[in-house]
Amino acid sequence: MLQHLVDRNPQVPSDQLVGQLTPPAMFDDVSFASYIPDPAEPSQTEAVRAAEKFASGLGDKKGKRGLFGRKSKTATGSGLYLDGGFGVGKTHLLASIYHAAPSPKAFGTFVELTHVVGALGFNNAVEQLSGHSVLCIDEFELDDPGDTMLISRLLTELSAQGVSIVATSNTLPGQLGEGRFAAQDFLREIRSLSSIFQAIRVDGPDYRHRDLPPAPDPVTSDRLHELAEATDGASLDEFDALCDHLAKLHPSRYKKLVEGVSAVFIDGVHAARDQAVALRLVVLADRLYDAGVPVTVAGARLDEIFTEEMLAGGYRKKYLRATSRLLALSRFSVASAG
Rank of each mutant, 00 (worst) to 15 (best):
K90F: 10
K90D: 05
T91D: 11
H92G: 00
H92S: 01
H92C: 01
L93N: 08
L94H: 02
A95R: 10
A95M: 08
S96Q: 07
Y98L: 15
H99G: 13
A100F: 07
A100M: 03
A100Q: 07
A101N: 04
A101V: 02
A101F: 04
P102V: 07
P102G: 07
S103M: 03
S103K: 08
S103I: 02
S103R: 09
S103H: 08
P104A: 02
K105A: 02
K105H: 06
K105F: 03
A106R: 00
A106T: 03
F107Y: 00
F107Q: 01
F107T: 03
G108C: 11
T109A: 14
T109P: 11
T109E: 10
V111Q: 15
V111W: 12
E112Q: 09
E112T: 04
E112N: 01
L113G: 07
L113K: 06
T114Q: 09
H115T: 09
H115N: 15
H115R: 12
H115Y: 12
V116H: 02
V116C: 07
V117E: 11
V117W: 09
A119W: 01
A119H: 03
L120E: 02
G121A: 14
G121R: 14
F122W: 11
F122V: 00
F122L: 08
F122N: 01
F122Q: 06
F122D: 05
N123Q: 14
N123G: 08
N123P: 00
N124T: 14
N124C: 09
A125I: 09
A125T: 10
A125Q: 07
V126L: 03
V126A: 13
V126R: 02
E127L: 13
E127W: 12
Q128W: 04
L129C: 11
S130P: 05
S130Q: 15
G131D: 09
G131C: 04
H132S: 11
H132C: 13
V134I: 00
V134G: 02
C136V: 12
C136K: 13
C136A: 15
C136F: 09
D138M: 15
D138I: 13
E139I: 02
E139M: 04
F140I: 09
L142M: 13
L142G: 03
L142N: 09
L142H: 10
L142A: 07
L142K: 10
D143N: 15
D143C: 12
D143I: 10
D143E: 12
D144S: 13
D144Q: 11
P145D: 00
P145Y: 00
P145Q: 02
P145T: 00
G146T: 11
D147T: 04
D147R: 11
T148E: 07
T148I: 14
M149W: 06
M149G: 01
I151L: 15
I151P: 08
R153N: 13
R153V: 01
L154Q: 02
L155H: 01
L155K: 03
L155V: 10
L155A: 03
L155G: 06
T156Q: 13
